[in-house]
């Protein structure tokens, strides 16, 4: 594999953002209007950086008049998300519709199925007053094993209890929570089909390649304009495109559980700036020694991260696969 030179911390900075934006916009326009033969696009907007950049790119590419922003809060959403999503759409002149999916999720028993599993582990949990989240420990990368998840309940009085999740409860909580992303995908396709628009998905490169998305949930879309961009580059585009500063300055969260939770805590285990560089180093065949030197890591830690990336890519391959049809 050809390497683009010495490994350095600014390798991922786009040299010509204007050109990158122009290329994405040109391809997206062609994909929506010709490949997909649609008359516009819908984007689920959450007030997060990825959906904001996707909407901004789409507005530039296919025109704000051919775009619909769908805001889909539910009972556990941070109220700030909806306000920021609206602010973003206003900035780019995109029409919006707000669809509260809480009742749909009640119908699926999303909350009750999740809370039932939580109570089996932490019986004192009261979903009406307490908050919960699941995540991995920051030191799990050191263990040289796949991470295990911990359930944390933050009681109304401010105390917290955290326990390692056994397999059955972990699966039930994740399966119930994934109903949120899948309900959003259904709502996006409702609006897309009713307007003869395409669904524009919002996952970035890490989410796609490390499998940090829900199959047929946020992974269900017709086109994913930022799927080739590292998170560092998504931020670079956000600044270039004029995404509101409040969105750029926000910590990326999952906005899935009732307790606040960063994406780093839930899945990535690293600040995105470091993860971007590690992933780039791994993907482009840089030695662990060169990457360790640049990032100030031990070589052993870089090797463990490389192994972790390899494991994640392998074990999440099924998420990126289309249904197997060659029988």
């Amino acid at each position: 594999m050809e390497k683009p030179g010495k490994f350095s911390g600014d390798l991922l900075q786009l040299k010509d953002v204007n050109l990158v934006v122009a290329n994405i916009c040109s391809k997206l326009k062609d994909d929506v209007f010709h490949t997909l033969r649609c008359q516009g696009g819908v984007v689920g907007i959450s007030g997060g950086i990825d959906s904001s950049v996707t909407l901004a790119l789409a507005a530039k590419s296919i025109g704000a008049q051919n775009l619909l922003g769908v805001i889909m809060p539910e009972r556990d959403s941070n109220p700030e998300s909806r306000i920021l999503a609206q602010k973003l759409a206003d900035k780019f002149g995109v029409k919006t519709v707000v669809e509260d999916i809480s009742l749909a999720l009640d119908g699926f028993q999303c909350y009750s199925r999740r809370d039932e599993a939580v109570k089996r582990i932490i019986p004192g949990y009261n979903p009406g007053t307490d908050k919960m989240k699941i995540g991995i420990r920051a030191d799990s990368i050191e263990k040289d094993l796949p991470p295990v998840f911990y359930l944390t309940v933050i009681f109304s009085g401010g105390t917290r209890e955290s326990k390692r999740l056994p397999v059955n409860e972990y699966l039930q909580i994740v399966a119930a929570s994934n109903l949120k992303q899948r309900s959003r995908m259904s709502m996006l396709y409702y609006h897309a089909e009713s307007l003869h628009y395409a669904v524009l998905g919002t996952p970035n490169k890490h989410e796609v390649e490390q499998g940090f998305f829900v199959k047929y949930g946020d992974g269900g879309a017709d086109a994913m304009p930022i799927a080739g961009l590292y998170k560092t580059q998504v931020y670079q585009l956000a600044r270039f495109l004029g995404v509101p500063d409040e969105i750029i300055g926000r910590t990326p969260t999952t906005d899935t559980y009732s307790a606040e939770q960063s994406q780093e805590e839930f899945f990535y285990q690293l600040p995105f700036e470091e993860m971007d560089l590690l992933w780039y180093g791994w993907e482009n065949g840089y030695s662990s020694e060169a990457v360790a030197k640049e990032l100030g890591y031990t070589e052993d830690l870089v090797v463990k991260n490389y192994k972790n990336f390899e494991r994640k890519r392998k074990t999440t391959e099924y998420l990126r696969m289309a249904p197997i049809r060659d029988y």
Binding site: P146, V167, R311
Partner: peptide, 17 residues
Amino acid sequence: LFDEGIFDSMGLLNLIS
């Protein structure tokens, strides 16, 4: 088991149980 992809995170959870 983990390095060779025989077990993943689900495998670890099942093993602990």
